[in-house]
């Protein structure tokens, strides 16, 4: 019990930090471009967080773009066709990818690892065809849909950027707390149990199918929110290209680079990888920056198989120990 409480306290502090630091940055830097890069980081760390949660239950999805894209489409259609305010559509739309998560989870309930990955990837390819062909009348086929913006009319571009920044930040922190809470709870324990060894978990009375479905459903919802947020703030447009390989790969990279299994990992991973890439893109350009990212990631995984966060945590703990020399020795 004490451990859980300590974890809660730490999470709250981390959350507070995550709110304060970027807010501080906001007052210092008014450059729209920097705000937009960080807004992207906030939004995609929500997406990475969603993948991380599913991975926590042993479901390593390689088709997470399904949820990202469906969330965008549902929210944009709800806002532009059904007249919902974007702020509302943002939370209503993701119900679709949540349902898709349940469906895919059910479809794949007996599949493991590579099989699971391939089928989830396949689902993305199929969803793309369906969106373009069968639902083309609704989705405008390959042209895609323009998204109404989250910020109210009349607000100048600079203010819009700040508003998007703040909202994305708030949602990122909220997602962090929610996911941390889930991981900390009995549900999280069940996830770990299923991930570790399904047979043992089932023998211990854990309903494997139910928890797997729950994990994918919740992950689907969260990813859907990220997609909807992205559509209404940064891209202002959605097209079937979202159901490609790229958007399914990035959350995997961000989460693992950051540190799998921890709620802080995806955020750290997204921040470091994305900012590094933006920097490389401007300084080096095009192909070279992507090659560099690939090399960096290859190095990270061979040198730090557990991701950056554990190293980060250990380093900062060591730093903290040095800063308070007369503390009681830690057990």
């Amino acid at each position: 019990m004490g451990a859980r409480l300590r974890r809660l306290r730490r999470e709250l502090i981390v959350a507070a930090l995550m709110l304060c630091l970027p807010a501080l940055l906001l007052t210092l830097v008014q450059e729209i471009f920097v705000l937009q890069v960080l807004t992207f980081v906030f939004i995609f760390s929500i997406y990475a967080q969603s993948w991380n949660l599913a991975a926590h239950s042993g479901q390593f999805s390689l088709g997470h773009a399904t949820f990202l894209g469906l969330g965008s489409y549902a929210s944009i259609i709800a806002a532009s066709r059904l007249g919902l305010a974007p702020a509302v559509a943002l939370f209503v739309g993701p119900i679709l990818p949540a349902l898709a998560g349940f469906a895919i989870g059910a479809l794949c309930r007996r599949l493991r690892e590579a099989y699971f990955g391939m089928v989830t990837f396949g689902c993305t390819a199929i969803v793309q065809v369906l969106v373009v062909e069968q639902f083309g009348w609704l989705t405008n086929r390959w042209d895609g849909l323009d998204a109404p913006r989250l910020a109210p009319e009349g607000l100048p571009v600079e203010r819009v950027a700040v508003l998007n920044y703040v909202i994305s930040l708030a949602l990122m922190v909220a997602t962090y707390l929610v996911v941390a809470a889930i991981i900390r709870s009995r549900i999280g324990l069940a996830f770990v149990a299923i991930h570790d060894n399904e047979t043992v978990a089932a023998a211990a009375g854990v309903s494997v199918v139910r928890y797997r479905l729950l994990a994918m459903g919740v992950a689907g919802y969260i990813a859907g929110v990220a997609g909807a947020l992205n559509g209404h703030t940064l891209t202002r447009h959605i097209s079937p290209g979202v159901f490609g390989l790229e958007d399914s790969i990035w959350p995997v990279l961000y989460s693992i680079a950051g540190g799998l299994g921890t709620p802080e990992g995806p955020i750290l991973g997204t921040l470091l990888v994305r900012v590094f890439w933006e920097w490389a893109l401007r300084r080096i350009g095009g192909f070279d920056s992507l090659i560099l990212i690939g090399l960096m990631l290859a190095l990270v995984v061979t040198a730090l198989p557990r991701g950056i966060y554990p190293v980060f945590a250990r380093a900062t703990a060591a730093l903290g120990a040095r800063l308070t020399p007369n503390s009681v020795k830690q057990p």
Binding site: A55, F60, L62, E113, G117, I249, V252, L253, I256, A257, L260, G286, F287, D288, L290, I291, I293, G294, L295, L297, A298, V301, T302, P305, R306
Partner: peptide, 27 residues
């Protein structure tokens, strides 16, 4: 190097390989 570590690391590494090979070729 990745033998013995989490399975997902191998996937991660091959994704990194995709980035490297594809873009090196494209370059």
């Amino acid at each position: 190097r990745l033998r013995g570590t989490a399975k997902i690391n191998e996937i991660f590494f091959s994704i990194a390989l995709i980035l490297i090979l594809q873009n090196a070729l494209a370059r």
